[in-house]
Amino acid sequence: MAGQFELFTDAESRVRFRLLAADGTVLAVSRAYEDKRAAADGIMAVRECAGTGLIREDRTTPWGSTAWTRSSRVPQHRRRRHFPAGQ
């Protein structure tokens, strides 16, 4: 069974959605939306982006500056890697 999106109302009466794995594990929780229609549009955006999105690591220190590591001197376009699904 594939994962699923679940709409719910938060404590402030705003609509959100969560992405659940096949075993029911919560994988992601959305921001708050004004109504179900806006939340459904958010789900469609996630569906569209998730399959093609790149994986990027945020390399910052706890105080917000960039950590100086050997890999941070590599040009940005060379650091991004695309990992195909299933690998």
Rank of each mutant, 00 (worst) to 15 (best):
T69N: 10
R37L: 15
T66V: 15
K36H: 07
R31F: 04
D35N: 14
T52N: 11
L20V: 10
R37Y: 15
L7R: 07
L27D: 03
F8G: 05
A50E: 09
T69K: 13
G64M: 05
A32Y: 04
L7G: 03
E57F: 15
F17L: 01
V15R: 01
E48S: 12
G42D: 02
A45Q: 09
R47S: 12
R59S: 11
E48Y: 07
D58K: 14
A39H: 01
T52K: 11
V26A: 01
R18H: 02
V29E: 05
E48K: 13
L27T: 02
W68D: 14
G24R: 05
G53R: 15
A22C: 08
L19I: 00
R47D: 11
T69V: 12
R59F: 13
D58F: 14
R47N: 14
D58G: 15
L7A: 05
G51V: 07
V15F: 03
T61V: 06
W63D: 15
S30G: 05
D23H: 08
W68P: 09
A22T: 10
F17A: 00
I55H: 07
C49S: 13
G53I: 14
A11G: 05
I55C: 04
R59A: 10
E6C: 03
K36C: 08
E12C: 04
R37K: 14
T69H: 13
L27F: 02
R18D: 00
V26C: 02
E57G: 12
R47H: 11
A32R: 12
T25F: 04
E57N: 15
E57A: 15
V15N: 02
R14M: 09
G64N: 07
M44Y: 10
T66G: 15
R16N: 01
V29I: 11
F17S: 00
G64S: 07
S30H: 02
L7T: 03
S13F: 08
A28R: 08
L19K: 00
S65K: 14
T69Y: 11
M44G: 12
L19W: 00
E34V: 08
S65D: 14
E6S: 05
G64C: 06
R16Q: 06
T61R: 15
A32Q: 10
T25E: 09
M44H: 13
E12T: 07
G53T: 11
E48R: 12
D58P: 11
W63V: 12
D10S: 06
